[in-house]
């Protein structure tokens, strides 16, 4: 059972959180204009990498706010949590924060 650093509440037990799958998959601007295939990709298809993954979490038993995280799906280690209005961290930035020990 992990500690997950909610960007608003700080580190809390995993049981307080709800997983939300891949992050940065916006609702399409005009669904009606999408082909069936494009729509299917929005509805059903999500990345499933082994390794670093940008994903959504909800602190459902706490502040109930959604946030994003970069987590390694092989080690389960959280490299970064960030608010929904923050941009997705780039690889360089993640590497730097790890060196500086600022990763959660």
């Amino acid at each position: 059972m992990q500690l997950i650093a909610c960007p608003w509440c700080g580190p809390r037990e995993e049981v307080e959180f709800h997983y939300g799958g891949q992050a940065h998959v916006p609702y399409p601007d005009s669904p009606a204009e999408l082909s069936d295939e494009e729509w299917a990709h929005y509805v059903f298809f999500r990345d499933n990498p082994k390794g670093r993954f940008a994903e959504r979490w909800n602190h459902s038993a706490g502040c109930r706010r959604w946030f994003n995280a970069i987590r390694d799906t092989a080690t389960y280690r959280f490299e970064r949590v960030y608010r929904l209005d923050d941009p997705k961290p780039g690889v360089t930035e993640l590497a730097r924060s790890r060196e500086e020990g600022t990763a959660p």
Binding site: M1, H18, Y19, E55, R71, T73
Partner: peptide, 13 residues
């Protein structure tokens, strides 16, 4: 376990 994971392990709760 709710999250994606390739670790062949889960949480004890």
């Amino acid at each position: 376990d709710s999250y994606n994971g390739y670790g062949q392990r889960g949480a004890f709760h």
